[in-house]
């Protein structure tokens, strides 16, 4: 029983840790996709956020400064994507792919210039995002240790769950949310009602970049302590898959992210405890993503105007 509670606690802890960055990125992806802009640049935005976050935290010593700057770095790439895909009517998939490559190569270049290596110098505990409720629970009892595993976790994890609630509220209970969803369904109709579709989409893509940047920063400032070339690898795309799985709703994306977070957590738990081939374990999240898409995507409702550039009639 003790062992079981311990393992369960540890798995929940790892799941929550790995869900956090995915969920930030997925909420960002929701904004962009629901407003009608395909954003496969999430991966690059996360990488930019991951690098900027650790870098700023390392030099200023303030984790929250780093976290915010990570978001801003993502927002900057979002701005570039929006400029091309929303303002100039470029192919959203091409510029998205370019943004991904741009984010990764720029992060590597700056990292090499500043640290003379492809990795940043590890952050100290003070420079990392703090854990909440440390020492609140008694780790001496079985139940206490379980609670310690699950609830004494990073502040960024608490923040993302609150954020999910806020995004849900904005999407379904505010005028802004209604307009946002309408832009992705029928931009022409929006324009006739006096909504500026271009500005709306522009804003949403920048928000998606900001959230993705925050997600990236969580990877390097909470789960790990440094930026490495393998920090993000595919998490941005997994977040997009979670959004498709969640039928383009924030609450659905939450479920998707928990599932993928669990798979990534499983990789860590199994990798630490057994002699299973690490290469094969690394495949788990990706295989599960494909399987989930095969099973669920057929019924998913995609915003009707998603991926179509909106060009204002003269």
């Amino acid at each position: 029983m003790t062992d079981f509670m311990n393992s369960l606690g540890f798995i929940l802890y790892v799941t929550l840790a790995y869900t956090t960055p995915l969920l930030y990125a997925a909420l960002g992806s929701c904004f962009s996709e629901v407003s009608g802009v395909v954003n496969i640049g999430i991966e690059g935005m996360m990488t930019a956020g991951a690098f900027t976050g650790t870098c700023v935290a390392y030099f200023t010593g303030n984790p929250w400064m780093g976290f915010l700057c990570g978001g801003l770095a993502g927002a900057f790439l979002g701005l570039l994507h929006a400029l091309a895909a929303v303002r100039l009517g470029a192919d959203q998939t091409i510029t998205g792919a370019a943004i991904t490559m741009l984010g990764i190569s720029t992060a590597t270049i700056i990292c090499k210039v500043l640290f003379s290596s492809t990795e940043t110098i590890p952050l100290s505990v003070k420079q990392k995002i703090p854990k909440l409720f440390m020492g609140v629970f008694e780790p001496t009892t079985v139940f206490g240790r379980f609670m310690d595993y699950v609830f004494a976790t990073y502040a960024s994890t608490y923040l993302v769950f609150i954020l999910t609630l806020v995004v849900w509220f904005v999407f379904y209970k505010t005028r802004f949310g209604l307009r946002l969803r309408a832009c992705g369904e029928h931009p022409q109709a929006c324009e006739t009602l006096g909504i500026n579709v271009i500005s709306m989409r522009f804003l949403c893509v920048v928000i998606s970049g900001f959230f993705s940047g925050l997600g990236g920063a969580c990877v390097t400032m909470a789960i790990s302590t440094q930026f490495r070339p393998i920090s993000i690898v595919g998490q941005g795309f997994i977040a997009i898959a979670a959004v498709i799985f969640g039928k383009f709703r924030p609450q659905g994306a939450l479920l998707g992210c928990l599932l993928f977070g669990f798979c990534s957590g499983l990789k860590v738990v199994l990798g630490a405890s057994s002699g299973v081939n690490m290469q094969l374990l690394s495949m788990i999240p990706y295989v599960v993503t494909v399987l989930i898409l095969v099973l669920f995507v057929g019924k998913s409702h995609v915003p009707s105007a998603n991926g179509k550039p909106y060009i204002k009639a003269k």
Binding site: A84, I94, I99, M101, S105
Partner: peptide, 16 residues
């Protein structure tokens, strides 16, 4: 790599 990715980015502007 940066130059290649910038080239793809600008290729998105071809229509424009």
């Amino acid at each position: 790599n940066l130059i290649s990715s910038l080239i793809i980015y600008f290729c998105g502007f071809v229509l424009f």
